[in-house]
Amino acid sequence: MVDKGSGTVLHRPLMILAAAMAVLGAIALGGLLFDDRSLVNAPIWLKPLKFTISVGLYAVTLAWLIGQLTRGRRLGWWLGTVFAVGLGLDMALLFWQLIGRGRTLHFNRETPADQWINNMVANGAFTGWGATAAIAILLLFQRLPDRAMNSALRAGAALSVVGIGVAMLMFGPNEQQMAQYQSGVKPSIVGAHAVGVPDGGPGLPVLGWSTVGGDLRIPHFVGIHAIQVLPLVAFGLLMLARRHSVLESEFVRRNLVRTVSVGFAGLLALLTWQAQRGQSIVHPDFWTLLTGAGIIAVVAAGSVLSLRVPRPMHQLT
Rank of each mutant, 00 (worst) to 15 (best):
R311K: 15
Q68C: 12
V206E: 06
V166N: 06
V252G: 01
I218L: 10
W273L: 08
A179V: 06
Q177P: 04
F235R: 14
G86F: 09
P202T: 07
I281C: 09
L230P: 01
D215Q: 05
V229C: 08
V40Y: 05
A136K: 03
A158M: 08
D36A: 15
G213N: 04
N108I: 03
V161T: 15
L33S: 14
P219F: 12
T272E: 09
S54L: 08
A42P: 00
G163T: 10
S306E: 05
V309L: 14
M21A: 15
G100F: 03
A19N: 13
E175G: 13
F171L: 09
A42S: 09
N119L: 10
A234K: 01
L46H: 05
H193Q: 10
R37E: 07
T132P: 00
Q115D: 14
Q68N: 07
M21F: 03
Q279G: 01
W96H: 06
W287C: 09
G163L: 09
L289P: 02
Q115M: 09
G86K: 04
M168H: 14
G67N: 11
N123C: 13
L238G: 11
L10P: 03
R143M: 08
G31D: 11
G30P: 00
L69W: 00
F51T: 05
D36G: 11
F235P: 01
T317C: 06
G213A: 08
L57E: 07
S38A: 08
R254K: 14
R101T: 06
T317H: 11
W77A: 03
P312C: 10
V85M: 07
E175C: 06
V246L: 15
A241E: 11
F171K: 07
G172H: 06
V260C: 09
P219W: 15
L105K: 01
P112H: 09
G201H: 05
Q315N: 06
W64H: 08
S303Y: 00
Q142P: 01
A125M: 11
G163A: 12
G72D: 02
G294D: 07
V2R: 15
G208A: 03
A125F: 14
R103K: 11
V161K: 00
V23H: 14
T272A: 13
L49D: 01
G102H: 02
E110C: 06
V60R: 08
L256H: 02
S210I: 02
R253D: 03
H11W: 14
L32E: 02
G263F: 04
T61W: 06
M149D: 01
I99Q: 05
L65F: 12
P231A: 12
R258Q: 13
G130T: 10
G184A: 07
L62N: 02
D90E: 15
E175Q: 13
L144T: 08
G76W: 04
M120H: 10
V60Y: 04
S151G: 04
L240E: 01
A22D: 09
V161Y: 01
A226E: 15
L62W: 11
P198E: 10
S210F: 03
A148Q: 01
I164E: 05
I16A: 08
V257T: 02
I117M: 11
